[in-house]
Design a protein around this nucleic acid. Structure first.
Lengths: 152, 152
DNA sequence: GGATAATAGTTGCGTTTATCAATTACTGTG
DNA sequence: CACAGTAATTGATAAACGCAACTATTATCC
C-alpha cells in the first residue's frame, strides 16, 4: 500500500519536470525565433493537416480568438495556409506551408537531440521502462481528465 | 538499439503530457482563485523558506522584475512575508504567512487527489515503475540542462 | 578612508498575450 | 423567407513579460 507521501512526491517530481520541459520548449522555439504557442500550432498542424481553427483550439485548449490572431501571424510570416472550406464556408482549413514544415522540422530536431541527450543520462536498461511509463501516464491523464471531479 | 522514431514518439508523448499538466495546474490554481505563477511561488517558498527574491527568480526561471511584482501582490493579499535581510540589507527574505501555507495546502490537496485519480487508471503493478521513471527523467533532465549544447 | 564598481530589488515603459463581448459571414431549420 | 445556431474575426480591456533605468546597500581598490 502506497502512503500519501508517494503522491506528494510525484506531484513535486512532476511539477519540476514540467517546469524544465517548459523551459526546453521555450529554448527550442526561441532558437528558431518563434514563440512556444507558435511551435505548438506548427506541431499540431503537422500532425493533423487540414484541420479547422475550431478543432485546433480544442486540441490546444485555447480560446478561438487568441488562436485566430496567432494563426494570423503565422499566415503573414508564410508558415501556415488558411483557406475557407468549400464544403462549409464558415470553417477555415489550416495547413503548413513548405516553410512551416521546415520550421517544424527544425524544432523537432532540436527536441530530438535534447531527448537523446537526456536518455544518455539514463541507464540503457531503463529506457524501455521510462518510455512505457510516460505512455501510461499520458493515457491515465487522458482518462482522468474526462471524469474529473473538482474536490473544492 | 533504439531507432530515431523512439525519440520522436517520446517527444510527442511528453509534449501532450506537459500540456495536460499545464491545464491541471491552471485548474488547481484557479479553483483557489490564484494564478499558476502564484501557485509556483507558494510551492517553492513552502519548500525553501527564507529565500531571497534573487534565488527564487532563478528557481522559477523568471525575471526579477516580474517576480518582484508578483511577490508584491502576494504580500498585499497576505500570503507572503517580505522582510529586508539584516545580514545584508540589499536582500529581502521571503516566507509564507499562515494564510499562504493554507493556500498552498489547498492546492497541494487538489493535486494529490488528482494524481490519486490518475494512478487509479494505471495498473497497480506499474505504479512503482512509473514513479521511478519520473524520478529518472527528472534527474536526467537536470543533468542534461547543465551541459546543453544548442544545435543551431 | 573615500571614490568606484558591483549587486539586489524596485519601478517605468513598451510589447506581447489572454479573455470577454460584439460583429460578420455562412448554414440549417421551421 | 425569417430565424436560430455556428465559425471565425475583431475590439477593448487587463494581465504578464522583458529590458532598461534608478535606488539602496555592500564590496573593492587605490
Amino acid at each position: 500500500m502506497k502512503p500519501v507521501a508517494t503522491f506528494v512526491n510525484i506531484r513535486e517530481t512532476f511539477q519540476v519536470l514540467v517546469r524544465r520541459f517548459g523551459l526546453l520548449q521555450k529554448d527550442g522555439a526561441q532558437c528558431c525565433g518563434i514563440s512556444v504557442v507558435h511551435s505548438h500550432i506548427l506541431y499540431e498542424l503537422q500532425k493533423r493537416p487540414n484541420i479547422a481553427l475550431n478543432e485546433l483550439a480544442d486540441l490546444l485548449s485555447m480560446d478561438t480568438s487568441t488562436l485566430s490572431r496567432q494563426v494570423h501571424h503565422l499566415v503573414e510570416t508564410g508558415m501556415v495556409n488558411r483557406l475557407p472550406d468549400p464544403k462549409d464556408r464558415r470553417y477555415v482549413v489550416l495547413s503548413l506551408t513548405a516553410q512551416g514544415e521546415e520550421q517544424h522540422a527544425q524544432i523537432a530536431a532540436y527536441m530530438e537531440s535534447y531527448f537523446a541527450n537526456v536518455f544518455e543520462q539514463i541507464p540503457a536498461e531503463k529506457h524501455e521502462q521510462v518510455l512505457e511509463s510516460l505512455l501510461l501516464m499520458n493515457e491515465a491523464m487522458k482518462k482522468s481528465a474526462d471524469c474529473c471531479t473538482p474536490p473544492l
